[in-house]
Structure formats: structure tokens, C-alpha cells
Amino acid sequence: MPVLEGRDLVKRYDERAALDHVSFVVEAGESVAIAGPNGAGKTTLLSMLAGVTTPDSGSVELPGGKLGWVPQKAAVYQKLTVRENLELFARLEKVDDVFGSATRMMDRIELAHRASDRAEDLSGGMRQRLSIGMGLIADPAVLLLDEPSAALDPLQRERLWELLGSLADSGIGIVFSTHSAGEVEGHADRVIILDGGKLLYDGAPADIGPGAHFELAFINFLRARRAHVNVGGDAE
């Protein structure tokens, strides 16, 4: 069952096309990675799907219900406690049972024992889990995450992916942007590859093309496409 549909999305900044007629669908319980070199349009696409920026043309549909959004940095109020952060967003999301929702969410993100601690006193991984909890507080059908593991150490990263895996298993659609080929290979059911605002690939990571592993296959894929189409931008 689709929980998120992007239809023919276009966004231009002056003459530059940040997104050029991008369309895709995310199913319930599916984990979709958005990959591509710097300036490919990943953050623009996620911001547009989240409703932060509006497309010049095209539309975003949410047939499955609400959408949760987790920005790139661990976006939490540092001076508020774990519970206060969750309760504030529960109120803003107009959740009926504010206290109960916050309590359940703290259990889910494994921060119940730090409920009264301020976010500034948490580790980076805990803050990221809190940020995800704030995105999940209204029980969304799909969760968008902009480079969720960027500032985490390997152990925290592993714990994060365990959490996101359990969310996908519970039927929530997960859409995340990443620079890591390992995360695409290890945690995504599908990968959407963008370059110069264009959608170049939408399919299983394993099907991208020849290569001993995904990273090599990804680079080969980008080189091959750029040889045919002049899309600009430098792959890293």
C-alpha cells in the first residue's frame, strides 16, 4: 500500500534545476534510500516531501496518512528535557494523549530512563533518537530522515539502524538520504539515485549494475550515465 507519492516534482533556483520532473512511490514498511553526489537534489527532495519547501510544479500525496520529518542535525531543543521535547511536538501535532504518547515514544526510542534529562546532556546518538522520536510522535505512516547517521559513531549508527528497521517492520515507510553506499546496501529495500536534480535510478540496490559491491557499482553507474547525459555536478 503506498504511503507517499511524489508526482513530477520540479524545483528551480533561478536557471538551475534542483529537481527535474521527479516521480516515485514509497510503500508501507518499505525502506527507501535517496542517494547521489553533493548537489544532486537529495535535501531539496526531502524538504519538498516534508512540506518545508513547495514545488514549482508537481505534487506530494500522502495516501497512508501523516508524515514525520527528521532534519539533518539532531534537531531538538537543547534546553528542554527529553519529555518536554516530545510533549511540545505532541501538542503541535495535536496528538490527543500528549503525556501517554510521549511516554510510549520514550520507551520506543529507549530514552525512558533519561526522561528528565535535558537534550544538551544526552550523547549524540541519544539526541538523534530523540529527534526521530519527535518525528514519530504523531504516528506517521512515513518517516523522512535527512542523513540520519551523519554525526554518529559506528555503535550509535548501528543502534539507529536497529530502531529504523523496527519502525519499517511495524509498517512505517522509511525514506532517508545518505552518502554511505554501505547504508544503502545494508538498510534500503530500494534506492533512488539523483544527479543534477534528475532521477537516474529507482530500484533495488543489487540491481544497479556491475561491481564487486554497491559502492563500486554506484560509481560505475554514475560514470556510465554521465557519459551519455550531461547532467553536471561532481560525484564524490
Binding site: P71, Y77, L92
Partner: peptide
């Protein structure tokens, strides 16, 4: 600075 604005602007406020 803390990217809270983008969180709030996506329909919350």
C-alpha cells in the same frame, strides 16, 4: 541554528 525552524514550518506552525 538548530534546524528547528524546518521542523516547525512543515505544517506545525
Amino acid at each position: 541554528e538548530d534546524q528547528m525552524l524546518t521542523r516547525l514550518l512543515r505544517g506545525l506552525a
